[in-house]
Design a protein around this nucleic acid. Structure first.
Length: 212
DNA sequence: GATCAGATATACT
DNA sequence: GTATATCTGATCC
């Protein structure tokens, strides 16, 4: 049984942290989720050409992304498409600005509460099948950005679960990422019904009305 | 399954 | 001022 993720766990490279998070459980506000799908985002530093253009940290710190440039083990929750919250955990060295997006998981406890938070879910497996759904069942919002998961009495915690067998860990391109979409930095557990359906970055808007 | 509408913070010009 | 966004839910096959 591996020890629970602590500061040194999150201080490692995003790809390592991402793989290590599979099978871990996240508990927040009465709901516990076992992670089945995550994605890694690299920081802007590194050899030329290796920076991650898909990361919010790519162009350096901004008011939104500044927490990524701080110490690892903290939450970065941001609003996407004007309506959905997505939760990341800052990882890598202090200042490296890498992160891991929590994409999907299986609700293991607090399913009733999770259903209240996500009435649109059509099955138990759908409760946290997707990054905004996962953030939803855990009731995470931008107000939780900066929260330290490694604090002694953290309101939100990450603990090691039963580690997945290595042969069920899969990797592939990230979802909804147009830049560097070819990097196989998405990790998931094969056979888990809670893993979100892969959808390449594609049409984002309907565009303006043409003609008339 | 495939396609489309949705609502706003954020970052860039 | 304008374009974009680490997506979801509803609807139509």
């Amino acid at each position: 049984m591996p020890h629970a993720p602590d500061r040194s766990f999150f201080a490692r490279a995003p790809l390592v942290v991402a793989r290590g998070l599979l099978g871990c459980v996240v508990s927040a506000r009465g709901v516990t989720v076992r992670l089945t799908e995550v994605e890694a985002y690299a920081g802007p530093a590194g050899p030329a050409g290796t920076a991650d253009p898909a990361s919010h940290a790519y162009r350096g710190p901004t008011p939104r992304s500044s927490v990524m440039f701080g110490p690892p083990g903290r939450l970065y929750v941001y609003l996407v498409y004007g309506m959905h919250w997505c939760a990341n955990v800052v990882c890598g060295a202090d200042g490296e600005a890498a992160a891991v997006l929590l994409r999907a998981g299986e609700v293991t406890t607090g399913a009733g509460l999770a259903r209240e938070r996500r009435p649109a879910a059509r099955s138990l497996h759908d409760l946290a099948r997707g990054p905004a759904k996962l953030a939803g069942v855990l009731a995470l919002t931008g107000a939780d950005t900066g929260l330290d998961l490694c604090a002694p009495a953290a309101e939100i915690t990450v603990l090691a679960g039963s580690p997945p067998a290595t042969d069920v860990v899969r990797s592939g391109p990230r979802v909804g990422v147009s830049a560097a979409g070819d990097r196989p930095w998405r990790f998931w557990l094969a056979g888990e019904p809670t893993v979100s359906r892969y959808r390449p970055a594609g049409r984002r808007t309907a565009g303006p009305v043409v003609g008339g």
